[in-house]
Amino acid sequence: MDVRSVTSRIPGIGDRGERKDVVAVVKLHGVITPTPTPFARGVINLAAVESALTRAFDHDRLKAVALLINSPGGAPTQSGLVAERIRQLAAGKPEIPVLAFCEDVAASGGYWLACAADEIYAHRTSMVGSIGVISGGFGFTGLLERFGVERRLHTAGENKARLDPFSPEKPEDIEWLKKMHTQLHELFVDWVKKRRPGKLADTEELFTGDVWLGSRAAELGLIDGIGNLQEVIADRYPDAEISVAEPKRSLLARLGLGAPAAASAMLDALAQRVVWSRFGL
């Protein structure tokens, strides 16, 4: 048997037996949430993506790391933690570029993640931006009265029960929440400006929380160009192979054991559905 005919079929091995360069891909797909869901698919947090990020940057013959992003956003802290971890790993290999590719949506926290890359690309139809802060909830005071239910709440500390959904809203609590939103918004804006110096259009329109399609996002400097992962990588690294870095899964997850209760899983799915629906997805 001709040894060359065997080695040429091994992934990463060329016709002459040399190992190919690698572009490592990390998929950042889903809602960004701190909720520990080891059995669920489609959520992003540091615990969920840490192993995939580490594997990506540890590849031999690494030419670039590509972040494949499809996220409507979510928790700001997890957005920051994941983005900072990407930059920390990138700092250890300053010669390796980090490229972000926006798919359907890279909005809010999803765009925060994209800004961890050195360059950002999107499809013409991708929804990009939403540099703002949002929170929501429900009030159940009328429901309790309707069924004759008395709310009993005891605290130590006058501000311990801010925005309790079973109590009437207080103006001072709303003002407190607005201040928190303003502070988070300022951090988001500072992060975008830090990561994209000299690239952003000189307009406050960028930071109103609006979202744009890929072509307009390019005009505003939110992304570096129009393109998808396959075509950009093929053009810049024609001799490299794409290797998807998958996160490690626990033994219970691999065996399909220990899945969350049906009610809890349904609530998680509903919460994620609400976030995606803001972008018509």
Rank of each mutant, 00 (worst) to 15 (best):
R216L: 02
D210F: 09
D235G: 10
P238E: 05
S215W: 00
E219G: 02
F207G: 04
A240T: 05
D190R: 11
E204L: 08
R249F: 13
A234I: 01
P238Y: 02
R195H: 14
R196S: 15
V189L: 09
A240C: 08
S215D: 11
L213W: 08
W212H: 12
T208A: 01
E219D: 03
L187M: 15
S215T: 05
A217G: 01
Q230S: 15
L187W: 13
K199N: 14
E186K: 07
D202Q: 12
T208E: 09
K248I: 14
D239V: 11
K199W: 07
K193I: 12
Q183D: 11
F207D: 06
L229F: 06
W191L: 15
I242A: 08
E246H: 12
E204T: 14
A240G: 01
R195G: 15
E219I: 06
E231Y: 00
V192N: 01
Q230L: 12
D239W: 12
R195D: 14
A245G: 11
G221A: 05
G221L: 04
E205L: 04
E204A: 10
S243D: 09
F188M: 09
T203R: 07
I226Y: 04
Q183W: 06
G227P: 02
K199D: 14
R196G: 14
E205C: 02
K194R: 15
I223D: 11
Q183A: 12
F207C: 04
H185Q: 09
P238K: 00
V232D: 01
D210S: 14
R216F: 06
F188N: 00
D190S: 13
E246I: 14
S215L: 03
R236P: 06
V244H: 02
D210N: 13
G227T: 00
D190G: 13
R216T: 12
L200T: 08
L213F: 12
I226A: 02
K194A: 15
I233A: 09
P247H: 03
E219T: 04
R249I: 15
L206R: 01
A218D: 07
R216I: 09
G227C: 00
A217F: 01
R196T: 13
V211I: 06
N228F: 03
A240V: 07
G198Y: 03
I226G: 03
P197A: 04
D235R: 10
D202G: 11
P197D: 11
S243W: 02
R236W: 00
D202V: 06
A201R: 02
F207R: 02
S215Q: 02
I226S: 05
L220R: 02
P247N: 10
L187G: 15
R195A: 15
I233H: 04
E205F: 06
V192S: 00
W191M: 13
L251T: 11
L187I: 15
K193E: 09
R195Y: 11
T208Y: 06
R195E: 15
F188Y: 08
L206F: 04
A218V: 05
P197M: 09
L220W: 03
S215A: 06
D239P: 02
L200C: 10
R195K: 13
